[in-house]
Amino acid sequence: MEPKTELEQAVADLLVATLNLETRVEEIDPLAPLYGDSGLGLDSIDMLELALGISKQYGFQLRSDSSDNVRVFASLRALCQHIDQNRVR
C-alpha cells in the first residue's frame, strides 16, 4: 500500500469519523476506490455526508461532475488532489 500524504491522512480521519466506517485509517489504501462495491464501498448517502464534512473543513463545495459522480470519489488520492486544488482553508 502506498504511504499517505499529510492531507490524505487528515481526509482519511475525516472519512472514518464522519461515516462511522468499519475500517481503520491505516487500512485505507489511498489508491483504492471509495465508491461502489469494491474498496471502501461508500454509497450516495455517504457522498452527501462526506461533501458536507469537506465543505465545513476545507471551505469549498464539492462537485461530482454531473453523471460521472465517481471521478472525484475515485480514490482517497483523487479526492485529496481535488481538495488541494479547491480548498480555501
Binding site: L48, A51, L52, Q61, R63, S64, S66, N69
Partner: peptide
C-alpha cells in the same frame, strides 16, 4: 444530481422558468 453544487449547477442550466425537483430529505438537508 447528488451533491448540492451539482444540484445548483443542474438547476441553473435548465432552460425552463418552471423547475420542479423530485428529491429526498437527505438531499434537502445537504
Amino acid at each position: 444530481p447528488l451533491l448540492p453544487q451539482d444540484i445548483q449547477y443542474a438547476m441553473q442550466n435548465l432552460a425552463s422558468p418552471n423547475i420542479w425537483w423530485a428529491t429526498t430529505p437527505l438531499h434537502l438537508r445537504a
